[in-house]
Every structure is written in structure tokens, then in C-alpha cells.
Simulated assay, not measured.
Amino acid sequence: MKQLPIPPVSTALKDREEVAERLLRVSLRRSFDPERDVDWDAPFVAGKWFWPPELVSLYDTPIWREMDEERRQRLAQVESGALASIGIWFEVVVMQLLLRHIYDRPVTSGHVRYALTEIADECRHSTMFARFLAKSGTPVYPISPFTQNLTRVFKSCSTTACSLIFTLLCEEVIDWMQRLTFPDERVQPLVREVTRIHVVEEARHVHYAREELRRQMAEAGRWELRLTRTVTGELGRAFARSFVNPEVYPGCGIDRQRALAQSRASEHRREVLRRSARRLVVFLEDVGAFDPRARRLWCAAGLR
């Protein structure tokens, strides 16, 4: 896994309307309709992976070395389905957070128009993931009831800054993995096409969220900064726990507790998570979203 250099983070605040108008122009040029732009009728290719093996949670663990190629590919297939499941949940939460963000803003502004455009993107992504799940035949692994109910409170009460950090955490970690997936010729063509579409459209979502978070942090008072830093730490811990549903292991005939222990102890897995979050960590440090406790929680979660 080649690690690309991280460009320096700009500290200048950009005009909100200029950012939105530029993103609207890009959206007009580079948007997809998965119902028409993905070949859903094409059969899966025998022997191809559903997810790069290096990104599978048990890669290079003792369990992985005990498995034959067929079982490894099955685990990769089930984990790709689990990621699609959590992706739909995430997109639904983001859409609600965006609607809260623009609820009392000028409806004719470019900033609001772009948020509505992004919501339309996320709707298509959700239906795309759902269709992939149906075609792949993998089980649907819902988020845990505890996380589901905790998020119900979060999406109703969070500040804009906390909402944007949640958005960026989920988008940037998965985006890093998908950027390794869609060019990988070992991977199923359908998976490559789904991840390519998601990467192209999420790039502008990330830009929108980063610019708005920079503005929110620059304008925040002392209490809001303290709250944001506290929530940042908790989001890292919750994300790491939810990223791979532990039920994928018994679903593949693997002992759940043994698999969890080996995945959490895997230095390779921790390196994957660190790399996937590296750009985001640099950005969040730059805008002041970390305090010492948040850094410790992200380190414990393997994200830094």
C-alpha cells in the first residue's frame, strides 16, 4: 500500500458562496446515475476479490494464514457487504445532518443549493450500496442497537462542527480504502465501478465539509471548542468499534472472540487504519479539533 505525501493544509478561510458555486459546477460535470452507469446485469468474475485482501480485517493474522484462498475471498466478500450496510446507515445520518445545517439558512444561497445537491448524491449512493448488497447475496449487518440509539440522539442534538467531524471521519477513512480498491485489477469489476463512482463524488463532499468545519472552528467560542474536542475523541472510539461488524466472523465460520482479538492485535490492521485516517488527523489538528484526551482515544482506536 503506497503512502502518498500529504499536501500542506491551507489556513485561509474561503468565501462560502465561492466554494459552493465551484462545487456546483463540478457536480454538473461529474455526477453519476448508478442505475444507468453501473452494469448491474454483468455476472461476477470467478476468482476475483470483493475487497483488496490487504484491507480485510484479518489479513496477515494467524487465522488468515490458516484459511485457504476460498475462505479468504468469502470473508472479503462478506466484509465488503458489511461496509455497504454501514455505508447506507452513514449516508442516511449525513443527509439528516445536512438538512439540519441548512434548515434556517437562505434557501437561494449557493451554500444551501450545494448541500441539497450533496443530499441527492448521498441518496444515489445509498441506493447503489443497497443494490450491490442485493446482487452480492451477502448478509445485511445492521449497526448495533446501542450505536443506533446513540446516533439518534447525536444527529438531533449535535453542533455543526461535531456533525462535520462525524461526516469527515466516515468519508475520509472509507475514501482512502476505496481509492486503493477501484484501480485494483484483482477486484470484481462491479466493486471497482461502485467504489470509483463513490470516490469521484465524495471528493467534493469532503471539500465542502472541510471548508465549513474550518469556518465553524474559527468562529467557535470556548465552550463549543471544548465540546467539539470531547466529541471528536468519542467519535473516533465509536467509529473504530463499528467499522467492521463482528458478526461477519461467525457468518464465515470463524470464532468471533478469537477473530476480534487477532484483528485488534494486528499491527497490519492498525497501520491500515492509521494510513486511512492520516490526512484527516493532520487536518483536525490544524483546525484545533483535538485535545490530549481526544488524541489518546484516537490512538487507542488505532486511528493515529
Rank of each mutant, 00 (worst) to 15 (best):
A294T: 04
E118L: 12
S263E: 15
Q3Y: 09
P5F: 10
R29L: 15
T127P: 00
A261P: 01
R269K: 10
V153A: 11
D37H: 14
C299F: 04
H101L: 10
E18H: 04
L58Y: 08
E122Y: 04
R295V: 15
T230W: 12
P8G: 07
A130Q: 13
Y103C: 06
R279Y: 04
I6W: 08
L297N: 01
W176I: 00
A240E: 03
L303F: 09
V19M: 07
S109D: 05
L180F: 01
R29Q: 13
L13C: 07
Q216D: 07
R237K: 14
D255W: 06
R65N: 11
L180D: 04
R296V: 04
A218K: 14
T167V: 07
L83E: 08
R256Y: 04
A42E: 15
G47K: 12
L133C: 08
L225K: 15
N245S: 13
G137N: 09
I63C: 09
S85K: 06
S85P: 02
E271S: 15
T11L: 14
W51F: 14
E17W: 06
T138Q: 07
Q178S: 01
I119K: 07
S144A: 13
F129K: 02
S57A: 14
Q262T: 06
P53I: 05
R226H: 01
S126R: 09
I197D: 02
E247W: 03
V287L: 03
E271N: 13
S158M: 11
L297R: 13
L190Y: 05
K2L: 11
D41K: 15
G87H: 02
A209E: 04
R258Y: 00
D33W: 10
Q188E: 15
V92N: 10
F290C: 06
S242I: 01
C123F: 08
T230H: 11
I88D: 01
R100T: 03
R71F: 00
S80G: 09
R222K: 11
R100I: 01
V26F: 09
Y208E: 02
P7L: 10
V153M: 11
I143G: 02
R22W: 00
V206D: 10
L116F: 06
P183L: 07
P5N: 11
R65K: 15
A130M: 13
R256V: 03
R295F: 02
A20P: 07
S266Q: 08
A46P: 14
E54D: 11
S27I: 00
C162I: 01
R105W: 01
